[in-house]
Amino acid sequence: MIGNFVTTRFNYILGWARKYSLFHYPFITACCGMEYMSTAASHFDWDRFGTGWTRFSPRQSDMLVVCGTISHKLAPVLRTVYDQMTEPKWVMAFGTCAVSGGIYDNYAVVQGSDRIIPVDVYIPGCPPRPETVLDGLIKLQEKIQKQEQEWRWKKRK
């Protein structure tokens, strides 16, 4: 009984800590990168939501921001980057191209990054306005708070 209580509290606290310290790796390929810059810089500043640290190494980051068109040539690179990230990790599909291929319905473009990696939050828009991105970020934070957290010495059922 007490054990359960401690576990749920710990789960909650871990979620709270994780959602406000999302180190992110921007996988910037195309136009959406410009809006990513705007969101990250001073005017919109998603540091306010605890996403301030841009880690340019997948091994140090928790959130992968797939920002822009993923062509077939780039797909293996995206997959590698995702695999290099350590658990727990979340993925944000930023822009219509990352969500579904967008206006590029042709031979060269992967029709959505969720064909290669699991995606947690989809942000539509071509490119999405920074406000939309912030909204998506908050949605992701809610998701992180609610989900069941993993930790090393957790008892498996």
Binding site: G68, T69, I103, Y104, N106, Y107, A108
Partner: peptide, 25 residues
């Protein structure tokens, strides 16, 4: 070539008016 999106080929399949948004990108 990592961002090849087939712009020129797409344009051949769009009308002169419709291909304007592709030039934005």
């Amino acid at each position: 070539g990592y961002l090849h999106r087939g712009f020129e080929k797409i344009c051949e399949n769009r009308t002169y008016f419709n291909l304007l948004p592709y030039t934005d990108r």
